[in-house]
Design a protein around this nucleic acid. Sequence first.
RNA 1: GCUCCCUUCGUCUAGUGGCCUAGGACGCUGGCCUCUCACGCCGGUAACAGGGGUUCGAGUCCCCUAGGGAGUACCA
Length: 470
Amino acid sequence: MTVRTRFAPSPTGYLHIGGARTALFSWLYARRHGGVFVLRIEDTDLERSTKESVNAILEGMAWLGLEYDEGPFYQTERFDRYRDVIQQLLDTGHAYQCYCSKEELDVMREEQKARKHKPRYDGRCRHRKGVPPKGVKPVIRFKNPLDGAVVVDDLVKGKVIIQNSELDDLIIARSDGTPTYNLTVVVDDWDMGMTHIIRGDDHLNNTPRQINILQALGAELPVYAHVPMILGADGQRLSKRHGAVSVMQYRQEGYLPEALINYLARLGWSHGDQEIFSLDEMIDLFDASDVNKASSAFNPEKLLWLNQQYIKNSKPEHIIHHLSWHLGQRGMDPTRGPDIIEVVKTQQERAKTLAEMADNCYFFYKDIDSYNEKDAGKHMKPEILPALETLATALSELATWDKEPIHDLIKAVAEQFELKLGKLAQPVRVAVAGRAMSPPIDITLALLGREVTLARLDTAVKYLHTLPAE
RNA sequence: GCUCCCUUCGUCUAGUGGCCUAGGACGCUGGCCUCUCACGCCGGUAACAGGGGUUCGAGUCCCCUAGGGAGUACCA
């Protein structure tokens, strides 16, 4: 039997990290078992579903690399099928029309609550006799079994038993004839041959009702795995006030998709002490039954650390693939300046995000029109002028513009003026980078090239001359 | 209220009755390295929600309590 899993978001917003993780687990499970991963868009809520949301979800999944084998299927295109199933349920006596008004139901629920009971439909229309009331469009309710219990053998939660007496006759078709969620998922999962339903544990309560419908339909039951939800860093339900919740926002902030994937996988799932997993390793090791039962809090610091690990250990070419978007955002053209591969190599150990890396690369590709005020105040002092001028002259005469000779030269000039290396390197750094932060000074100059280096040193010398002597 | 789910360092987790005076990771922190920023390396901090059982022995099994979450819609 081929394993078939699905991700079934409703398009009412962007792809958020909670959804992304259940999608990831579904995807991993399918890949692990050589199965099929299906994408289904649950857009039966016409009011809240939008085309933009569909695109946002598709975009997010594409960026994460969660490719699907079938779909996307849209529930709005399957209304005929749902109608048929509802009719079938009606014909076989598993469903009935209910003429209760909203007001009537509200009264009933209030009474139940007053008696400290669980509010639920009491099935009064099951046996409604005589002519239906005129002008009232009925809803269709599923006839839930009255006794017995439903047992869900959940891959994550274990055995969960719910008494049928706790369940009521849920509405499967609205008065306008459109199907509701619990009916459409069941029909779709059945039609699409889903063998494993991996979804958020907020659906655990729906599962017994869905199983009952499945059974009324004579369908084979899938295996369920209800994965816990992701909480915000404060342990509360994830929402916008926790910062980035949209997957695409992480791209903007400079995260590598594989870092996010790795982080999401490790949230609620683990394999011994291992923290970093390649996609192949995850596919090889992932099992739904190893997923933790408790929900976990999203920890931005750890994600940042993981991102840094990935940046440090990835091939420069791969980084550039994702970095170029950030460079473009800042108006930088990596073809006009030092070899971007060499620049990235110097940055892999000094940037936690691609956004930070792009900022760090700025002075390699753009002219600097000012110095960082604080750094200049600290390092750009008139007394460094002689050394700086000597260095500039020496650099202009240097035979080969390369890291080692540049390093030797700076060291020699520093010694000549009885300065520690840092005392000379820092002013040079501010002069060429605009701030007291850059890769090692010899590498920085080597990459920048002789022309740019000398021009910026010249600018610095002129700037120093404008300062009042102490 | 009712039903269901959950509970190991601040956070993510290891742990399936003795290997646990509870291990790893992030964070925080002391030090080393150092031309800046970083990387790296060595060290430190900190947890079995509480209470009862079962057992020679419990983080691990059972029960209760507390706390957290979900559902309880003509939303999904």
